[in-house]
């Protein structure tokens, strides 16, 4: 097995819609076709298709870390709510994460909070994408 550079793909993300071939597209395509952890190459380097939040949550399962992840999810969800693009289930997932934290199930809390934060981040992306794409379905 080759040594693949496991970098948090999303950590280096920049808004790259203009680029015909972007790191983000390569990342999404690998993830879409082969799932989590799929290895792909971009500009001569290898990366694994792991969401930013999955990397963030890949830390020691402690109460402190779980609380930190929950806080991050809440902050991100607040951000998307202000844009008017909050998703329906996110608050519930954050609540579940908090319950898991209270119950001492820190791994579960970390994973749920990671999902909630991912949802919030995707909602923000959806908002920005909508600004330049809503026109596509208007009858002309």
């Amino acid at each position: 097995m080759k040594k693949a550079l496991i970098l948090a793909a999303a950590l280096t993300l920049v808004p790259t819609f203009v680029a015909a071939e972007s790191f983000e597209n390569a990342y999404l395509q690998a993830r879409a076709m082969y799932g989590q952890g799929a290895v792909f190459e971009w500009n001569g380097k290898q990366y694994a298709a792991v969401h930013e939040e999955e990397v963030e949550a890949d830390i020691a399962a402690t109460a402190e870390n779980a609380q930190m992840m929950v806080d991050k999810a809440k902050a991100k969800n607040k951000e998307v709510a202000e844009l008017g693009f909050e998703w329906k289930l996110t608050r519930g997932i954050i609540k579940d994460a908090e319950s898991a934290l209270t119950a001492g199930e820190y791994r579960k809390a970390l994973d749920l909070a990671a999902q909630a934060k991912y949802h919030a981040r995707m909602g923000i992306k959806q908002y920005h994408y909508a600004q330049s794409s809503w026109q596509l379905s208007v009858p002309q």
């Binding site: 097995m1 082969y34 799932g35 290895v39 791994r107 994973d111």
Partner: peptide, 20 residues
């Protein structure tokens, strides 16, 4: 083309999320 799932299986996270 291949999936190098094993690379990541070290992380506890995967237990819940991966297709593994």
């Amino acid at each position: 083309m291949r999936k190098l799932k094993t690379l990541l299986c070290a992380t506890g996270l995967l237990a819940m999320l991966s297709a593994g």
